[in-house]
Write a protein that binds this DNA or RNA. Structure first.
Lengths: 235, 235
DNA sequence: AATGACCAAGTGATCTGATCATTTTCACTC
DNA sequence: GAGTGAAAATGATCAGATCACTTGGTCATT
């Protein structure tokens, strides 16, 4: 009896999927590491290749593994996460978009406050990098990239709270589809204002001023929400 | 040219998956509706059965569809959601558990406040039902079921906010694995106290007292967190 | 007429084994 | 030593068959 092979029976595919996760855990693999070939897994678990592939697709759907054509199966970036953005989510309707932003305006300010108290080292540096990158992208006029980086800033801010679950939640609600939706609606806030506000939030967090960080984050998101509400009423 | 068949090429499986989602959307199917048989989908998209199944497994992983042996393929309960609890998440460690509860203590109070302002009809009734059910389960001594219902109460509370995204976030952080973890750690709060606190929150929401609802929810979750911290230090 | 046992069709689950496409490695050439 | 190209490893997809479960209807029993 050991770590591998020989599933215990229950529904084959369920068992396969969890056995493979267990295998990854046993080997202490983490995101990016190579796992094991499809054929080898089929041999190990005594099942056919298509069955293994179904199980892998299930894991792949949530970012637990990645299948790279011609290369192999790798551990995915979202292994072990509790909260996820639905990878199959449709681009949100205007209503859903507003709802999403309201949710962010509710959640992120207290997260910023916590971040100001905790000030997780690595995340602070990441925020700084995000701000630098954003400034460059504004100068270069690359608005698509800028939108990404701005979202990154919010994610870095959440990571500074030191709470991985909160970081996952914020990551999930700063989902990229939103950018597409904003572009469809031709909504663009004042980019320089956004950057300034982000800088102010960063400074507040760095200074450990929780109340200020919370207030600035709330005002920032409420501002974004106001812009969007305005534009939507116009159309 | 029409709604079905004939994918546009990009990576077959990606296309298949999104084509199937598009098909579901076109037919205006919603959770629980029967979709289409695997073989029929294979014919429609001119691909082999195992390929269709891989795509279906991908959709299944996030609750977009369900495959019922001998019966058919059905639309899943999570279709269209933005935020999800990772269905493959491991039972959290003690640290992760505390983190999770801290996240809840941060997020849920403002959600409760919003709920008190919005008071979405259906959700209020659901909260009431949850409370009734909880009282009965306490009497019956069914602690496992009770834990579920208590989580349901928190989800119903979030739904009362009228913001689907917030409801999804709260649903994701009230993930069921936590119950297992609590049982492993032999942590049980005072059940009657929990029920009383839930009732008080419900009353505050019903009365439209946002400040009170927020405060009570915060105290409630901080209390749960305190209990867990105590027990963990003992061991 | 109501009930229950049984059968048959539909459908998902899994297998076998082959072929194509992409990536990676490495020996060979220049 | 650098570039090139074949070969190996590996994922992607196909085809068709068989097993297992669900469901609805038939039919005998009561």
């Amino acid at each position: 009896m050991s770590t591998s092979g020989g599933v215990v029976r229950r529904s084959l595919l369920d068992d396969l999927a969890s056995s493979m996760l267990a295998l990854i855990a046993d080997r202490k693999l983490s995101a990016g590491d190579q796992f094991e070939s499809v054929r080898s897994l089929a041999d190990r678990f005594k099942v056919a290749v298509p069955t293994v592939r179904e199980a892998l697709r299930r894991l792949e759907a949530t970012g637990a593994v990645e299948l790279r054509h011609g290369s192999g199966v790798y551990v995915g970036p979202h292994i072990g996460r509790l909260v996820l953005a639905n990878p199959l989510a449709p681009t949100p309707s205007s209503d859903r978009l507003i709802e999403l932003l309201q949710a962010r305006a509710l959640i992120e300010p207290p997260v910023a406050a916590l971040a100001a108290r905790v000030r997780s080292e690595a995340a602070l540096e990441r925020m700084d990098k995000d701000l630098t990158a954003a400034a460059e992208l504004i100068a270069a006029g690359d608005h698509a990239q800028l939108a990404e980086i701005n979202m990154d800033f919010h994610r870095s801010l959440a990571q500074a709270s030191g709470n991985a679950t909160l970081a996952e939640v914020v990551e999930s609600v700063t989902v990229v589809n939103v950018r597409e939706q904003l572009e469809i609606l031709h909504i663009h806030g004042d980019r320089q204002t956004d950057l300034d506000e982000h800088r102010a939030i960063h400074a507040a967090v760095l200074a450990g001023d929780a109340e200020l960080a919370e207030r600035l984050t709330r005002e920032h998101l409420d501002g974004v929400l106001a812009v969007i509400n305005n534009r939507l009423q116009q159309s």
